[in-house]
Amino acid sequence: MLSVKKSAVPSANMSKFLGKAALAVALATGLSSAALAQNMVVRSTGPSASSYPAGTKLANNARITLKNLDSVTVLSKSGTRVLRGPGTFSLNRTTRANATTTARLERFITNRGSSRARTGAVRSAGVEVATAAPKNPNLWFLDVTKGGKFCVANPDTLVLWRPDYTGSATASIVEPTGGNVTEVEWRKGNPLKKWPTAEAPLSSGAKYQVIGSNVPQAVEVNFVLLGKTPENLDEAAVALIENDCQSQLDLLVDTLGGGSDPEQG
C-alpha cells in the first residue's frame, strides 16, 4: 500500500490535496451527490487568482473578497456564478436545481457513448438538427474542432462529435509518431461517430491529430485516461481540473452557466 507523508505534499498543491481528501471522505461515508456539492472554484483570473485557484472548495457560508479586475467562477449544484471585483460576495444561496435541470446534468456527465454513435442514431443520442449553433451534448464526446488534453472516462465508449452535421463528412485520425492514418465517416445529419479503438488505440499520453473535411484546421489531442466515469459534478470538475482538460472544463462551466450575467461587487 502506498503511504503519503504530510511532508510529501508541497505547499503549492496543498489546497488541491485537501480537496481530494475531503471528497474521498465524503464518498466513504456514503453521502449523496447532492450533499457533496458545496461550491468549487473552476475559473479564476486577476490579482486574487492565487487565493482562489481552480479546484478550491468553499463552504456555503463562505465569503469571497475580490479586488478590481478579479473574476472568479464558482460551481455549485444549481449552476455557476461569475463574481467580479471589487467587492465581497456571500455564497449562502439556497437555490436548488429543479428536476429537469438535474436530469439534464446527469445525462451530460454520464458516459454513454459508443452504443449511441451508430450511423443514424442521432435522435437516440439526444441530439437533433437545429438552426442554432450546435452544442456538444455530452462532457465525454470529443469535439473534432478542439485540441489539447482530453479526459477519457472509458476508451471503449469514446465518441467523436462534429458541430456541423448538415452534410456528410470524413475525418483522418493521424498518429503523429508512426504516421498511421485511420479514416472515419459521418452520414448527413449524424454528429456522432465511435472512435476507432482497434485502429487507433488509446492510452494515457497518446496523441493523435484529427483532420476533418469541413474543419478549418487540424487539431492535436493528448488523451488522459481516467479509469472510471465521474459520478457527479464534484468528481467531474476535480478530474478535469487536475488533468488540465481545459476544453471539457470550459464546456462544463458553459453548460451549467446558462448564460447568467456576472455578479458585480
Rank of each mutant, 00 (worst) to 15 (best):
Y208E: 00
P230N: 06
A37S: 13
T101I: 11
F141S: 02
P230A: 04
I109D: 01
T166A: 14
N214I: 15
D254P: 01
A200S: 14
L256Q: 09
N60E: 11
K146G: 04
V184R: 07
A54P: 15
R104Q: 12
L202E: 08
S114P: 05
G126D: 10
N13S: 13
R187P: 00
V42P: 06
T110F: 10
Q217I: 12
A34W: 08
S71Q: 14
K146N: 05
R118F: 09
T100Y: 07
G30P: 05
G148A: 05
T110M: 08
E183P: 00
A21L: 15
A62D: 13
V152P: 05
D70K: 04
G55F: 01
K207M: 08
C245R: 01
A12H: 09
L142P: 02
A236F: 04
R93K: 06
A239D: 12
A237E: 09
A132W: 12
Q217W: 01
K146H: 09
S172A: 13
N111H: 13
N138L: 05
P10H: 00
P134E: 08
A153W: 09
G265Y: 12
L233P: 03
S32L: 06
T101F: 12
P196Y: 07
V219F: 01
S204W: 06
A28S: 15
E263D: 10
I173V: 13
S204M: 01
N68W: 00
G258D: 07
A8R: 10
K77Y: 13
A21W: 11
D244M: 00
Q248D: 09
P10F: 00
K194P: 10
E106A: 11
W161I: 14
K67F: 02
S90F: 01
E231K: 15
K228N: 14
R93A: 05
N98H: 05
S76L: 01
D261K: 12
G167T: 13
E175C: 00
L252A: 02
